[in-house]
């Protein structure tokens, strides 16, 4: 697929329109008094690839989970102007830090899970799940159990499972943190390709400056205690990005910039 002439994502044109998710003055205080997130304002544009970058404990996971609807904000609102009124229509995919697969089910059944839960007929579910597995590069591994797959392959199954409903938004909480660098690079590239062709909105939580610069159009830098947004950086480099981008001056410049903001966030 030769897409080099396209400088922005096809869906990125909608950025100026209504955002998919709109986070307004959201704070979260846990029962034990910890203020995990305070006064976060953030718009997630339709089709955007956004990274949430920040030190450990700055509330990235908490924020992501609230967007997913796992736990509600203490104050503030999270609206979905870019999605239908119907809450059930807000399909989203979620990828955890660990693959979180069902060990008793093979790869295909794991990917089928969201379809099974929505009572999609079995033959159709199988077909769609197999398609998704092929899309993440796991054709031929349908009947393998999680135990028989490598860490990177399990993560691929997890991504396939998150995408099998063709969600509008894919939320990922440090999905590749536990993988080695080579595997991580491969999965980053494959994720970008998937994003490019499936046109979902991607929110990617990470600790890694390099990963966030390589992947995203926008980097939201967060600071800890209490968790808040420090900076919102644009990464205007065109897609597709590859090894060339990793060695470019632009990349180095962006990494320095993001790393500076992150230092500020840690120091603050």
């Amino acid at each position: 697929m030769d897409t080099a002439y396209l400088s922005t994502h096809p869906a990125a044109g909608q950025e100026s329109g209504v955002p998919l998710v709109s986070i307004r003055r959201v704070s979260k205080q846990f029962a034990n008094g910890t203020i995990a997130v305070r006064d976060v304002d953030l718009d997630l544009g339709t089709g955007e690839f956004i990274s949430l970058l920040g030190p450990s404990g700055c509330g990235k996971s908490t924020l992501l989970r609230m967007v997913a609807g796992l736990g509600s904000p203490s104050t503030g609102t999270i609206d979905w102007p870019g999605a239908g009124e119907d809450k059930a229509e807000r399909d989203l995919g979620f990828v955890f830090q660990d693959p979180t697969l069902m060990p008793w089910a093979n790869a295909l059944s794991n990917v089928m899970l969201p379809l099974t839960l929505k009572h999609v007929p079995k033959s159709e579910a199988q077909e769609r799940a197999a398609e998704m597995l092929a899309l993440v590069g796991l054709k031929g591994f349908e009947t393998s159990y999680p135990r028989e797959l490598s860490g990177g392959m399990k993560m691929r199954v997890s991504i396939a499972r998150a995408l099998v409903m063709r969600p509008k938004i894919l939320l990922m909480d440090e999905p590749f943190a536990a993988l080695d660098e080579i595997t991580r690079h491969r999965l980053n590239d494959d994720l970008l390709n998937l994003w490019w062709r499936e046109r979902f909105t991607a929110v990617f939580v990470t600790h890694s400056v390099f990963e966030s610069v390589y992947l995203s159009q926008r980097i939201v830098v967060m600071a800890a205690r209490p968790g808040r947004v420090m900076a919102d950086l644009d990464v205007s480099a065109p897609y597709p990005r590859d090894e060339l981008f990793r060695t470019s001056a632009e990349y180095a410049h962006l990494c320095r910039l993001a790393s500076g903001k992150l230092k500020e966030a840690i120091g603050a």
Binding site: G137, L149, S150, G152, M153, R156, I182
Partner: peptide, 11 residues
């Protein structure tokens, strides 16, 4: 060629 080259020993 559907085997993902994860670079791990379980490849």
């Amino acid at each position: 060629a559907s085997v993902p080259h994860d670079g791990t020993d379980a490849e």
